[in-house]
Measured scan of single mutants.
Amino acid sequence: MPEGSASLQLAVGDRVVYPNQGVCRVSAIDVKEVAGQKLTFVTMRREEDGAVVMVPEGKVLAIGVRKVASAE
């Protein structure tokens, strides 16, 4: 991610809310080559049905992904 860009610090195992998809758990953060460029992807699995969603790390905030609020 370019320096100075806002990002959401995620780790494998974090629970997040993905708008219009529901609650997901981060299952992987991997670098993949797409069209000759190396990009970091956040892979999330929906808790409702296990569907897998992959989002480029740089788009996580723009999409509206946020961490699940704690009970505290």
Rank of each mutant, 00 (worst) to 15 (best):
V60I: 15
K32G: 05
V26D: 00
M44W: 01
V12S: 01
P2M: 13
T40H: 05
R45V: 15
G64Y: 08
V31N: 04
V17G: 03
Q37W: 06
G4C: 05
V17Q: 07
L39T: 12
P56M: 05
K67A: 07
V68N: 04
G22I: 04
A71Q: 10
S70L: 10
F41D: 00
V55Q: 04
S70G: 10
S70H: 11
R45N: 08
A71H: 14
S27R: 04
G4V: 11
V17A: 06
V34K: 05
E48K: 13
V26W: 01
V53W: 15
V26F: 00
G22Q: 06
G13P: 00
G13I: 02
Y18W: 11
S5G: 12
C24F: 15
D14M: 05
A69C: 15
V23F: 14
M1I: 13
T40G: 04
G36S: 03
V34N: 04
E33N: 08
P19E: 07
S7H: 12
V68Q: 06
E72M: 12
F41E: 01
P56E: 15
P56Y: 06
V16N: 00
Q21W: 15
S27N: 06
V34G: 02
S70F: 09
P56H: 06
G36E: 03
E48P: 04
M1S: 14
P2S: 12
V23C: 00
A35C: 05
V55S: 03
Q37R: 09
L61Y: 12
A51Y: 09
Y18E: 01
G64A: 06
K59T: 14
L10E: 01
P2I: 11
G50C: 02
E47I: 06
M44H: 00
V31D: 05
A62M: 07
M1H: 14
V16R: 00
I29G: 00
V52Q: 07
V52L: 14
R15G: 03
A51W: 15
D14I: 03
C24K: 00
A11P: 01
R66W: 13
G36L: 02
K38S: 09
T40S: 08
V53E: 03
V17P: 01
R46Y: 03
V26M: 00
L8G: 08
R15M: 13
M1W: 09
V68F: 07
V34C: 02
V12N: 01
E33Q: 09
V12D: 03
V60K: 02
F41K: 01
T43Q: 05
R45Y: 14
A6K: 12
D14P: 01
E72K: 09
A6H: 13
D30G: 14
E33V: 12
V12I: 09
R25G: 02
A11L: 09
Y18L: 09
E57Y: 15
D49L: 03
G13D: 02
G4Q: 13
P2T: 12
K32L: 14
I63Q: 09
M1D: 11
I63L: 15
A11G: 06
E33C: 05
A35Q: 09
L61G: 08
L39Q: 10
A69L: 11
G64W: 10
E33S: 08
A11T: 09
S70E: 14
V16C: 00
G36F: 03
V17E: 10
C24R: 00
Q37K: 14
L61P: 05
R45A: 07
G4E: 12
N20I: 05
M1P: 10
A71W: 09
V55K: 02
D14H: 02
Y18V: 13
A28W: 05
E57A: 11
V23N: 05
V55M: 10
V65L: 12
E48L: 14
V12H: 01
E57D: 05
A35E: 12
P19V: 04
M1L: 11
F41Y: 11
G36I: 02
E3R: 02
G50P: 01
P2N: 12
K38D: 04
Q9A: 09
G13H: 03
D30T: 14
K32T: 07
V65C: 07
R66N: 14
A35N: 14
V53D: 02
V52P: 04
V34W: 08
P56D: 13
E47W: 03
P2R: 07
Y18R: 02
L10D: 01
M54E: 12
A28F: 06
Q37H: 09
V60P: 02
Q37I: 15
V55T: 03
D49H: 02
E3Y: 06
S27C: 01
E33W: 12
S7E: 10
A28V: 05
S7G: 12
E33L: 12
S5P: 13
K32Y: 14
P2E: 12
A51M: 13
R45P: 00
A71I: 12
V53P: 01
P56T: 07
L10I: 08
V17M: 13
V55F: 07
A69G: 13
S27T: 15
E3H: 12
V34M: 07
A62C: 06
D14E: 03
M54F: 08
G13A: 01
L61V: 11
T40N: 06
G64Q: 05
V17N: 07
S5Y: 11
D30H: 15
M54I: 14
G58Y: 15
E3Q: 11
A28N: 08
V52H: 06
V16H: 01
G4M: 10
A69H: 11
S7W: 08
I29K: 03
V65I: 15
K67E: 09
T43E: 07
A71Y: 10
S70R: 07
Q21H: 14
R45M: 14
A35V: 04
E72Q: 11
C24W: 15
V68I: 14
T43M: 08
V60G: 04
R15T: 09
G36Q: 02
S27Q: 11
Q37L: 10
S5N: 13
V42N: 00
K67P: 14
S70I: 09
V52S: 15
E72D: 11
V31G: 01
V42M: 03
K38R: 12
S27Y: 13
P2A: 11
A11Y: 09
S70P: 13
A6R: 07
A69F: 09
G58M: 10
G36Y: 02
K38F: 13
L39G: 05
R25D: 02
E3A: 13
A6T: 12
V52K: 06
V52R: 05
K38A: 07
Q21D: 04
V17H: 13
V12A: 03
A28I: 04
R45S: 08
S5I: 13
A62G: 07
V23G: 02
A69K: 07
K59A: 13
E57C: 05
G64K: 05
E72N: 11
S5E: 12
E57V: 09
G50Q: 05
L10S: 01
K38C: 02
E47C: 02
V17I: 14
C24N: 00
Q21K: 14
G4D: 10
D14Y: 01
A6D: 11
V26P: 01
K59Q: 14
E47D: 05
R15K: 09
L10A: 01
I63Y: 10
L10F: 08
E3N: 12
G4T: 13
L61I: 11
I63E: 15
K38T: 09
V23L: 13
G13Y: 01
V52F: 11
M54G: 02
E3D: 12
L8E: 08
V53I: 15
G22A: 04
M44T: 00
V23H: 06
V34I: 11
V12R: 02
M54W: 06
D30F: 14
V16W: 03
V26I: 11
E72W: 08
V52C: 02
V42A: 01
F41W: 14
I29Q: 01
V42Q: 00
S27F: 13
E57F: 14
L8A: 08
G22L: 04
V31A: 05
V16L: 08
V55N: 02
S70W: 10
M44D: 00
S7F: 09
V12F: 01
R45T: 14
K67H: 10
F41L: 09
A35S: 13
V60L: 15
V42D: 00
V60C: 03
V12C: 00
M54D: 05
V23R: 03
V65Q: 03
G50K: 02
C24S: 01
I63V: 11
S7V: 11
K59Y: 13
E33K: 06
P19N: 06
G13T: 01
V26Q: 01
G50W: 05
A71D: 13
G22M: 05
M44F: 15
A71E: 13
S27K: 06
A69D: 14
K59I: 15
E57H: 08
L10Q: 01
T43Y: 13
F41M: 14
Q21L: 15
I29W: 02
S70Q: 13
Q37G: 08
G50S: 04
G58H: 15
V60S: 03
V68T: 07
A62V: 09
V31R: 06
E57M: 15
V26E: 00
T43H: 07
Q9I: 12
A35G: 14
P2L: 12
L39Y: 09
V65Y: 05
V65G: 05
L39S: 06
A69V: 13
R25Q: 09
V17L: 14
A6Y: 11
A71P: 11
V34A: 04
C24E: 00
V68H: 07
G36A: 02
E48Y: 14
N20D: 10
I63N: 10
G22K: 05
A51F: 15
D14V: 03
E48V: 13
Q37D: 05
R46L: 03
A6G: 14
A28P: 01
Q37E: 12
V52N: 04
G58W: 15
R45F: 10
M54K: 07
G36K: 03
M54P: 02
G13N: 04
G64H: 06
G13K: 01
S7K: 10
V17S: 07
P2V: 13
Q9L: 09
R46T: 02
R46V: 04
V53R: 03
G22F: 03
P2H: 12
G50A: 03
Y18H: 12
I63P: 05
A51R: 12
A35H: 13
V16Q: 00
G13S: 01
A62T: 08
E3V: 11
N20F: 08
A11K: 13
K67F: 14
L10Y: 03
R66K: 15
M1R: 12
S27L: 11
E72F: 10
